[in-house]
Each structure stands twice: as structure tokens, then as C-alpha cells.
Nucleic acid binder design. Structure first.
Lengths: 374, 374
DNA sequence: TTCTTCGCTGCAAACCTTTGCAGTGAAGAG
DNA sequence: CTCTTCACTGCAAAGGTTTGCAGCGAAGAA
């Protein structure tokens, strides 16, 4: 049904190459011919077949963005930022959602591989070796994970977790739980490592709860465990879990932050809207999206060889940079001083000490990142 | 860099067609040859180029999903449902976000056109005529909009808006505002039409506020207007705006539902978590996603002619159905009886009458839809 | 006049697959 | 021994573009 270049050529009485040039190099064709071709094209509703074009140029002007869970509000800012940056460079972004499933993840990069010039692998759940493998099929930039030899943009959640633990230590907490995220998450490991070290250094006991699905439900489901464990503070893998946990604790009659303090990670928009407002580690998601696109596209202006030698793909960079973006602890209302010992039962105090409050930095975290490796 | 079918053929000493068959019709090739080919392919890291394959088969096994704003929590359930349904039929979904921009919308369908077998146009902002035009380039199913001659799946927001207005009328409200959504939204028009009719029928005055961006910010920005207008109830274009409005009213010292009642549309997950919990019109988003995929793919089992005649694309259905899905009013805590006249200033009443509460249906809205046209 | 230059256009290869058709050789039937 | 059948494989066209190269005619230079 859709008209091809050949139909247009026939209709306007020229060779297909002229039609092609009319679209991709108009200055090479006689103005009169051009209008004739354009007219025929318009009339037939002709649109160049981008897949066929990509087959020969090796450029689709699309980039793929694979993310673990599109329903997690952590991702949209990253997606939007990536789209914006891509658009500046005349690229479109196709997003694919893996439902936290490593298998779906792998399938999707194959599905996308030849329809895009590169793939942004965001918070991947598959193994490093698998990532390396797929990166041989299509240029890849990894977000939220470090894998040797590949361009990566990471957020320093380790530093963030440390700040969070130190914040809790400063409030007097000595029994802290770490509400773990999904299996296979690099972020999860980083947080665990850093939080563990910080807790040890501060003489606190850190209880690990997990792995859990990184959702509100996943957080809420651990409320009972948190209560039983007797901790006075919790660091959650992300804001969603933190919010779910607060909800769950609430239903058990435990108040936040009076009975237990809760810290999240991500600083999603929602964390400003809940009551209490969430203390959280802000991650520079938008900057990550932009940076990743830049890294993927950094060499796309280089001339592409043709004919004999295999053509160089977008990701064929000699220098694979790894960038670490800063995080920042944002203290809001979900953390407070440790409750006095002895009062382990909630509800007795008429008015517990009000929520601890510090100046809210407000704006997004600073996003300058240092280049770590080359 | 990536190996082609020719490389594999050379490495395993067979013709490329044998390699092709090894992957797409293994039963046609001798087991011994097969293992040899497979071995070479494995060694070379060969992956069939799906774009080239699609060029000849006419099938990509991908479907495109274009949505207005990926950050709006209304969409993820729809996306997930579409993905699930697609996955059952061995299809992958590429999501593209338009940022509520009609131009980006059109660009994206062109970008996707030849990389997918069909496009789901979700809550499109472009004109009907443009939709018809792009539908000649790629099979399209429209969601949240009625356009003649094209398969559509709609949600009966008109009915929902009517129920909402009647609910408010029943609570005694006579001055109601309609917090409009974005320009170009079919849903917006439907709500306005139905709400207007219902208000008129009930002898109430309906104030139109808008158009607005369909976000929390968009809703919050109209709080001042709502206060000034003196209405006692608001029906918002969607839950996000309703939540933003409640937030904004709160900052102006107006309590919901004591001073003003607020109803949303969509029943996003968040609307259960806010205080007060949101009264809203539940839309069957997941069902919409599933249905749309089914409609797009309904003919994909038909044999495709080859050679002489132009091949029939996925969407080449004779019967373009239009489906209307039911909505349902879910009454929670953000609506209550109209405040007594005279008390227009907030803060005076020690304890206003508690929120009106009805049984919450809980489960998702029923999704059975009648076929409207053929 | 002859030669060069130049603007435009056509030719054909290339990109990577799939697939109808035909060819090959061996096994089985008569 | 000949003929058919059958499993397997190769051939080549097709799908819709892009692009280096060559051709062509006209205009300008010498």
C-alpha cells in the first residue's frame, strides 16, 4: 500500500536515484525536477522507508532506552532528559520496559539492536558478562552500573548511603535496617557496601532485609519485619519502598519519624508530597540521562567509512569513559532523633518531639561528575 | 564489526540460504549441517539483522506505543498491559514519549513507522485529519480518542464525568468548577460536554478553568482561581491535577473536602495514597492497553501474499471496530457535603463533618466494552 | 573549432535477509 | 536396472534505499 521510491520515480519520470537525492541532497537536483518529484511524492503520500535507509547508511537516528520498570517514578525524569538531549542531536528515543526481568532485558536489546544506533542500558538486571556480550552487537552505554570496558554513567549512591547512615548516627540511631532492593542491582550492592561500612564505623548494628521488589508493595511488605527487628531507623533501597514502608508501619501503629526514622534514595517528586516528607538521597537522574546520550552519540559526527572495510558504528569510541555523578542527602521530615529507650511501644507519648528539619536545598542535586577511568 | 549471515556461511562452508534456514526453519536443514552452522554463528556472535529481515518479510514483531507523557502515572498500567499482551503474541513494545507535543507526536510515528508493525496512538494531541494521514503510512489503533474509520478504544469518561457531577449534586453542590486539561485532548472535550450537560440538568453552574497542562503543577496553579471563583466543588481533568489542586488549596488554607470537594479522573495508584484519598472516576487503563494490542494484531495470523501484489499490512482489517470501555466512580475522601452557606471563610469550624464515604468497589473497573461501530 | 568545466541525471552495486524454485544425490519401489 | 521420491542445499530475485562513478549536453575558454 505505501508508495515506494520507485513509484515516485515512475510518476515523475525520473530515476529513483534522483528521487532519493531530492530528499537527502536537494541541492544536487535541478529545481524544476525537484518540484516535480516533490509533487508526485506528495500526491502518492510517499515517505522514505527509514529501515531500508538505515540498512545502507548504518544510521537510524534512533536510540533505545531500556529500563527496569517504567512505573517507577524514578525513571521518567531520566527518560525525559535523554529525550531532550537526543532531540537536540536529531535523534529519537524508543523506550522499552523490562519489568525487572533479565530475560526480557536481553530480548529487548536484540529486538532494538538493529533499529537503533545505540542502547542505553538503565539499571540493568542482567549479568555483567551478558552486558559485555550484547555490547558486541550494538553500542551500549550503561547507566547505574559499573562494567569494565564499557562506557558507564553512575550515581554515587555509595556516598549517599554513607551520608544517610551518618545522618542517622548523628540522630542517635544505633540499630538500623537496610531495606534491600532487587537482586542483580548494582545500586543495591553499592548501598549495602557503603551503608555497612558506615554503620560499622559508627558502631551501629545494620540489619539486612531483602532482597525485595523495589516498589511500594515491596517496601510495605517488610513493615512487620522492621517492627520485629526492633530497629529505630531504616535506609530503603529507593523512595518507593520507603514510602510503602512508611504506609505499612503506619498500619502497624508505628509513627514516622517518632517511632522509626526512614530514609529513601532517589528523591522522586512524590517524596516531597507524602506526609511526612521523605528524607532521601537525591540522585541526579536527569543529568544521568543527558550524559548517557552524549556519551553514546559523541562520535556520530565522524565520517563513516564505506565499501571495503566494515563501517564504524556509533559506539566505536577509543576512549570509553566512566562517569560518576554526585548525590546529595536531602533531609526532610521522615527522620528524627532516636526514641528514648524503654518506650518501645508506640502511642504512649502525647506529642513526640517534632520532626527534625533542616534547610531543604530545594533544587536538583549538583550533577558534575568526575571522569573515573578511561 | 557484527557478523553477517555471509560471514557465518563462509565460516561453515554453506550457502547463506542454509544459514538463514538454520534460524528461521531449522527442520529444513540437516542436523549435522545445523550444528555446524550454529557453532560458527555462536563463535562469530552472529545475530540475524532484524531490520533486513523485516524489509523482506514485512514483519518486525514490534509495536510502537506513542504516549503524551511518560511521567504521568496514568500511563504505566496501560503500557504494562500492552507489553504483556504483546509478549503473549511474541511482540515487543517500543514506547515513545511526546511531551504533549503534537509535532513530536507526528515525528515519532514517522520514526517508528517502518520499525514496527503498527502503532498505538495513546491520547493523541494531533488533529484527527493528521491521524488519518499517518494511518496511511502505518497501521494505527487510537486510544482515548474517536476518529472515524480507524480502530479506536475509548474509555467512557463522559459517563464518568456525569456520575461525578451527579455525585456532587447529591452532596448539595451547585457551584462547580471544571479544571480543564490540555488542548487537543478528546477526553477533555468529552468530560466538558458530559459535565456541562449533567450540571445543566441538575441546575448547577459550571465554571470552566483551562486549558491547563495535565500535571500536578497544572492543577496547583489553578488553586487561586478556584478560590476566587467561589465554587464548592471541582472536577479535574485527571488525578494528577486534582492532587496538585488539593495541595494548592491546602496552601491557601482551604481544606478538602470540608471547604471544597475535589474529584479526579483516572484512579491512578497515587490517588489511594494521598490524604485525603481521592474520589475519582476509575478508567480501565490496563484493559485499554490489552484491547488495543489485540485490535492491532488481530489479523497477524493471516497469510501474507508475496511477489506481485502489494502485501497486506497488519492493520489491513476490513472491520475497524471501535470499543468503548466502562468507567466507574470511586468515592473516597476528597468529596463531602457542601459547606453551609455563609461560612465561606475557612478555619472557623472546629471539626467539619467528616468525609462522606461509600463502599469502595476496590477492584479495577469492569472492562467489558460494547462494540459501537463496525 | 576544440577542449574543459559544470550541473544534472542515470547506472548499478551495496546493505542483509528471506524464499520460491531448481538441482543433487541417495534411497526405495517396481 | 530404471524411475520416482525425498531430504537437503544452492541459486537468484526481491525488499527499499543510498551513493560513487560515469555520461550527457550546454556553456565558456582558448
Amino acid at each position: 500500500m505505501p508508495a515506494t521510491i520507485r513509484d515516485v520515480a515512475r510518476a515523475s519520470g525520473v530515476h529513483i536515484s534522483t528521487v532519493s537525492r531530492t530528499f537527502s541532497a536537494p541541492h544536487l537536483v535541478n529545481p524544476e525536477t525537484r518540484v516535480r518529484v516533490l509533487a508526485s511524492a506528495e500526491e502518492l503520500g510517499y515517505r522514505p522507508n527509514r529501515a531500508a535507509r538505515a540498512l545502507i547508511t548504518g544510521r537510524t537516528h534512533n536510540i533505545g532506552l531500556i529500563i527496569a520498570d517504567i512505573a517507577n517514578p524514578f525513571f521518567p525524569p531520566l527518560i525525559k532528559a535523554a529525550e531532550g538531549q537526543a532531540r537536540h542531536r536529531d535523534y529519537h528515543v524508543f523506550v522499552a520496559d523490562t519489568n525487572e526481568d533479565p530475560t526480557a532485558e536481553e530480548e529487548l536489546v536484540h529486538a532494538l539492536a538493529k533499529q537503533v544506533d545505540g542502547v542505553l542500558l538503565c539499571s540493568p538486571r542482567m549479568s555483567n558478562s551478558l552486558i559485555e556480550q550484547v555490547s558486541r552487537e550494538v553500542p551500549v552505554v550503561v547507566i547505574n552500573r559499573q562494567v569494565a570496558g564499557l562506557p558507564c554513567v553512575m550515581m554515587d549512591v555509595g556516598q549517599g548511603a554513607r551520608s544517610a547512615i551518618e545522618h542517622l548516627l548523628g540522630l542517635g540511631h544505633r540499630r538500623i535496617a537496610l531495606l534491600g532492593g532487587p537482586r542483580g542491582s548494582w545500586t543495591n550492592r553499592e548501598i549495602r557496601r557503603a551503608a555497612g561500612a558506615a554503620a560499622r564505623a559508627g558502631g551501629a548494628e545494620l540489619t539486612l532485609l531483602g532482597p525485595n521488589p523495589p516498589t511500594e508493595t515491596g517496601g510495605g511488605a517488610q513493615a512487620e519485619q522492621v517492627r520485629r527487628s526492633g530497629v529505630t531507623a531504616v535506609l530503603a533501597y529507593n523512595d518507593l519502598m520507603a514510602i510503602g514502608l512508611i504506609e505499612g508501619l503506619d498500619q502497624l501503629g508505628l509513627r514516622v519519624p517518632q517511632d522509626v526514622s526512614v530514609v529513601g534514595v532517589d528523591d522522586i517528586a512524590l517524596s516531597r508530597l507524602t506526609r511526612p516528607k521523605l528524607t532521601t538521597v537525591a540522585t541526579p537522574t536527569a543529568a544521568a540521562g543527558r550524559t548517557a546520550v552524549d556519551m553514546l552519540l559523541q562520535h556520530d559526527s565522524e565520517p563513516r567509512p564505506r565499501g571495503g572495510g566494515r563501517s564504524a558504528a556509533v559506539g566505536d569510541r577509543r576512549t570509553t569513559a566512566q562517569v560518576m555523578l554526585q548525590t546529595e542527602l536531602v533531609i526532610r521530615d521522615s527522620t528524627g532523633p532516636v526514641p528514648e529507650t524503654g518506650r518501645t511501644r508506640p502511642g504512649g507519648t502525647p506529642e513526640s518531639p517534632g520532626p527534625h528539619r533542616l534547610a531543604d536545598p530545594g533544587g536538583p542535586a549538583r550533577t558534575t561528575g568526575g571522569v573515573v577511568a578511561s
